[in-house]
């Protein structure tokens, strides 16, 4: 089950990357806020139809859900705003790499302490090495991008 989930999440990452290329192209003519709004609107339309036919949960239970669980919607917006603030000052690549570092560090911390009622997975030596390899990989991406930028200009 775990392996299947990892594959599924890899696909999620793939679609996310396709999304950022498509949205990047679209936003050059339409603007950043407009692009994001369109992304959310079309996503909502799609999911409305999907839920009506295949939804097995209960949307109305949203009203009874603890408010802290609903606050996650602001996290996505916060991500967008902070990214938009950082990109002009330090560049897209540096922003993405710093963002990924933040994502991994907090991800491992949440697992370690089991925050938000999540699975408790301790930060052991193996996990620490995994993080180290992720950082090495980010370093190579940073270097690789610098190299190809020079070739292009």
């Amino acid at each position: 089950m775990g392996l299947f989930m990892i594959l599924f999440t890899l696909i999620g990452g793939i679609t996310l990357s396709a999304q950022s290329s498509i949205n990047g192209t679209f936003s050059r003519k339409a603007g950043t806020i407009e692009t994001t709004l369109l992304t959310f609107l079309t996503g909502t339309m799609f999911l409305t139809i999907f839920i009506l036919f295949f939804g097995s949960g209960n949307v109305l239970a949203l009203l009874d859900a603890p408010k802290w669980q609903l606050s996650a919607a602001f996290m996505g917006t916060m991500y967008l705003l902070l990214t938009v603030m950082a990109v002009p000052r330090i560049g897209v690549i540096a922003t993405n790499i710093a963002g990924i570092a933040g994502q991994l560090i907090i991800g491992v911390i949440i697992d370690h302490f089991g925050w938000f009622n999540s699975l408790v997975i301790e930060l052991d030596a193996k996990r620490a090495f995994a993080l180290l390899f992720m950082i090495i990989s980010l370093y190579f991406i940073y270097k690789g991008n610098k190299g190809s930028n020079k070739e292009n200009s």
Binding site: G55, N58, V59, M78, A98, A101, Q103, I105, F116
Partner: peptide, 26 residues
């Protein structure tokens, strides 16, 4: 930028919890 990334992890963890009660697609 670090905070932005952290926000994504928080979002994932919190939505996982919400998904257990109201459903994932929901």
């Amino acid at each position: 930028a670090l905070l932005a990334g952290a926000a994504l992890s928080f979002e994932g963890a919190i939505y996982a919890e919400l998904g257990k009660t109201i459903g994932q697609i929901e």
